[in-house]
Design a protein around this nucleic acid. Sequence first.
DNA 1: TATATTTACGAACGGTCGGTCGTTTTGTAG
DNA 2: CTACAAAACGACCGACCGTTCGTAAATATA
Lengths: 211, 211
Amino acid sequence: MTRDGRLLRGERTRSAVLEQALVLATVSGLDGLSLSQVADALGVSKSGLFAHWRSKEALQLAVIDQARVQWTDRVIRPALTAPAGVRRLWAVHDRRIAFYEARVLPGGCFFANAHFEFNARPGPVRDRLAAQQTDWMTFLTGLASDAVALGDLRPDADPATLAYQTEAVGICAVMQASVLGPETTYRQARRALLGHLRAITTDPTILPELS
Amino acid sequence: MTRDGRLLRGERTRSAVLEQALVLATVSGLDGLSLSQVADALGVSKSGLFAHWRSKEALQLAVIDQARVQWTDRVIRPALTAPAGVRRLWAVHDRRIAFYEARVLPGGCFFANAHFEFNARPGPVRDRLAAQQTDWMTFLTGLASDAVALGDLRPDADPATLAYQTEAVGICAVMQASVLGPETTYRQARRALLGHLRAITTDPTILPELS
DNA sequence: TATATTTACGAACGGTCGGTCGTTTTGTAG
DNA sequence: CTACAAAACGACCGACCGTTCGTAAATATA
């Protein structure tokens, strides 16, 4: 247990900076972000940031980790309360859309923004983003696989394809929301996946109705 | 017919700049792009660019138009040779994936990258990107609608949902290609949509086999 | 030839960027 | 109170940004 007030202060500002940087990164981009921007938004000095991170890149990597923590807390963990199988896969998708709906991040989805920003720029940032993406797809594929193994889905359903479709519908949602309007888009995003799941499930009664 | 060699020279460099800027924008971003970068890549002077576009923003808008022309030439127009109906919708998707596969743009998809870069930044650039996106979705919805009207698809198929799913699978493809590998991803992207189309068509024989 | 017109250039500007450094402030420990 | 350690600051650096401006080169017209 840390009782040193100096360290406590450091950790407090450190986490405040990460939170703010995560928000700003979804608007200006993870690279478009400027350190002055972050510092000014928090009323701290730019040079003070270098006491916590040696370079901008180090801060960017920390922001990625922060985004992952947020995603786990607000999307994955709540969804894990649903029973394993197709209902849990649906819960993850539903929570994800709810996360977008709640406008937690003004720029929509940190991972989508950052991924498209860095996917053609080799380096540690791109690598970490890619790792997050593979982890996420592995997670989704595992959920789909469980749903098949538990008999919730027809045995010929391909977990990889289902994971791909789930991710596709989710990404497309956050992409279109700012253009076609959130309400229409998110309804469409739920309808598209739920309709598909109901079509391949062995027991439609365990899934919510199409609205 | 313009015969003035001065104007001809201007148009030549103008289009060369747009072509180069489009390529670089998919790597560095439409805003991350720097004018020196574009100028150096072509061996022209940075100040010379301002003879053609009054500001960086004007160039960005021109690049968007250039990207639209390229997209029309390489995706839409070739697909229009397919017979109207579900085959044409499939042809558009297939050509789109082929466009990604051909690595025409090193950063994957200009519109996806630019959209995620600007979707939270109000201004003329965002507005034009949004307009392109609505046009594209209108186009896809029209194709789906035709497919229903022609009797290629079951009458209860919803064109808007089908357009949404088509776009989702396409976007997800270019997103995942750099992470999961192009071959797997693009096969998945084709399989996902083709499987869905075959499931809702009235005559599966007019569509290619699932591979 | 002389004169416009258009494209393209080099030099320079103010501003912002990421980053460094020495110092001050804040808190702990003897 | 003194000595020390961590956090935060202000001033400053070189590099690059988008942009402006006066000028030279190329091409048209007379």
